[in-house]
Design a binder for these strands. Structure first.
Lengths: 218, 218
DNA sequence: CATTGTGAACTTATTCACAGCC
DNA sequence: GGCTGTGAATAAGTTCACAATG
């Protein structure tokens, strides 16, 4: 009777910052593996990412014991463990809504498939686009959302439409049965509890930078 | 003798999370203004964004007193104040390096100009692209980075190249005199102190969501 | 003996609660 | 009466420091 997940903290108690760093560890470990390194340590990982070694160990300790005292972490082993925690040890079917500039970029983004995400359908309001394909992905009318989501067993949605339509699209995605949403439109979406939502605003990141630059000299 | 900036906390003491929320407040205020609303309150702003009213007030209090007891915040006034704090009350000249899918999306992204960012030059390694224009932006060879940055008084750089070249590009941008960098490649860049750097990895955001979805049922 | 995992100390961030003001 | 600004209280997150371990 091997338990599937030896230590399971209540996920709700895991700070979002920890999950974020888990993603960073995973990237760094993937770089290490492609450099042929088999073993690493909390201090190596930490210094590469600009955080303390204690932080790295604490973060991982939320989920179990992955290290080997005196040795460190086996890179391949840790990658597997983190992918399992993040849920990226499986394939996720993703729908893209909005095939404008950003949508096309998302369709072409190689980083997704590397982490187990696969955009299997796209939706757009423009009749000229409907029925065509882009990067091998079929573009549907939004009216077919329900059936396509069911057909292709889509679990996640990417919203890359104008701010004005984003909430409507979110509602449709939720109604179609999607469980998680990443929103690239600069609005705060409201979604029912149980649906996970993350927002990305490309201008935000720039604003973080301008704040720092603008205030550099006092 | 109105002082330009009545209260100036040492910016280094302002938590990054506060600056992040400032960006959210700004978006929300911009929505309010386009709905014709002239006044708002910490609790309205907070509930729209899913944070407490006290949090909103504390965040703003880092930078001065912008509210009117019994009334709330004058929307236009607060927008102006936040833009000044974030540095987006002025125009920023931005260079884009890497005109692939993502680069093209960034070129076409309308949200930038709205916040005072203007991509004034693009760079790519592909000789076929060099010398052409996209969305009215000239594409240069990377060798001309120094002169173009100086010419156009570029202060910020967007990195949208492959992971493998990102560090090299960052070094070049810094050498050219850029003060801030937003990196879209999935690597941790090292930059000298004094240069502000922010990383965006599109797959991270999805991983946050899959973590939540994967762990929803215990 | 280098390195993990972890309780305890510390630091930072959030919320409470209320005085002061319009 | 409604709402801000803020000190005090609480909670959350990070670092320290060291016993345990292959």
């Amino acid at each position: 009777m091997s338990p599937t997940n030896p230590s399971r903290p209540n996920p709700a108690t895991v700070p979002a910052a920890v999950v974020n760093r888990l993603s960073m560890y995973l990237r760094e470990l993937q770089h290490l593996v492609s450099d042929g390194q088999e073993t690493t340590s909390s201090s190596e990982l930490g210094s590469r990412l600009g955080i303390t070694d204690a932080q790295v160990r604490k973060d991982l300790a939320y989920f179990g014991q992955f290290g080997h005292p005196g040795v460190g972490y086996r890179v391949g082993e840790l990658i597997k463990a983190i992918r399992k925690i993040l849920g990226t040890d499986r394939q996720w079917q993703v729908a893209l809504v909005g095939v404008g500039n950003l949508g096309r970029a998302l369709l072409g983004y190689r980083g997704f498939s590397r982490q187990g995400f696969s955009i299997v359908a796209a939706f757009d309001a423009d009749p000229a686009k409907i029925g065509t394909q882009l990067k091998g992905v079929q573009i549907f009318a939004i009216d077919h959302l329900n059936e396509v989501v069911a057909d292709k067993e889509i679990q996640l949605g990417l919203i890359a439409v104008q701010a004005a339509s984003a909430q409507k699209v979110a509602d449709l995605l939720v109604a179609a049965g999607v469980e998680g949403i990443v929103n690239f439109a600069p609005v705060t979406l409201s979604v029912p509890p149980g649906i996970c939502k993350v927002g990305v605003d490309l201008a935000w990141e720039l604003e973080q930078v301008t704040f720092a630059v603008a205030n550099k000299n006092r």
